[in-house]
């Protein structure tokens, strides 16, 4: 039988103590499906996660404890899942906004760490792998590979900072 949990809005969070589960209704207009996936993935080692789409604009998330637990345990589970859900939704948006900066730093980090492939690496390379990986830039056109860079567009970092300079200052300061 479903019942509300202390401090949790009953329209959004209900518990079934007999089943050892908590049922969350998640507004799909606020939390995209990928955020629900991201949060769910963090929890599948800790509890059983069940997703459903009870109504068109809402996800239904059922978290069932793997070990017997009480109302406080279920409340903690619901609260932590909600926090993770919020973080996942916000992280996705931030990643979208800062994509240029994140990608340029990450690609340089891996390019720097991996270095150019050795002959041994190339020998072991699986050329049938999809999508086609092109470590030597063979598939690139001569023009793309060797064309003169445009002035002021040398690095991702520079682009990122320049973009940031154009960003509304309230965006960085007011949240």
């Amino acid at each position: 039988m479903s019942e509300s949990l202390l401090g949790m809005p009953p329209a959004r969070v209900l518990a079934d103590l007999g089943e050892g589960c908590v049922i969350l209704t998640v507004d799909a207009s606020m939390y995209p499906q990928h955020a629900v996936y991201a949060a769910a993935y963090c929890f599948i080692a800790r509890c059983y996660v069940w997703l459903d789409r009870a109504e068109p604009e809402a996800f239904r998330v059922v978290l069932t404890a793997k070990q017997p637990t009480d109302a406080e345990g279920l409340r903690a589970l619901a609260g932590e899942f909600s926090n993770e859900l919020l973080a996942s939704a916000w992280r996705r948006e931030i990643t979208r906004l800062n994509r240029g900066l994140i990608e340029s730093v990450t690609m340089q980090a891996f390019g720097g760490a991996m270095g150019p492939p050795s002959l041994d690496d190339l020998e072991a390379f699986d050329f049938s792998d999809e999508p086609f990986d092109d470590p030597l830039g063979i598939a690139q056109s001569w023009e793309d590979k060797y064309r003169k860079p445009k002035p002021g567009a040398e690095t991702g970092a520079e682009t990122g900072a320049a973009v940031a300079a154009e960003t509304d200052p309230q965006g960085g300061a007011a949240t």
Partner: peptide, 16 residues
């Protein structure tokens, strides 16, 4: 429960 968790994990790993 275990089957559902496993299927969800695989679904998320393949992107949906």
């Amino acid at each position: 429960h275990e089957l559902a968790n496993f299927a969800l994990g695989l679904t998320i790993e393949q992107g949906g």
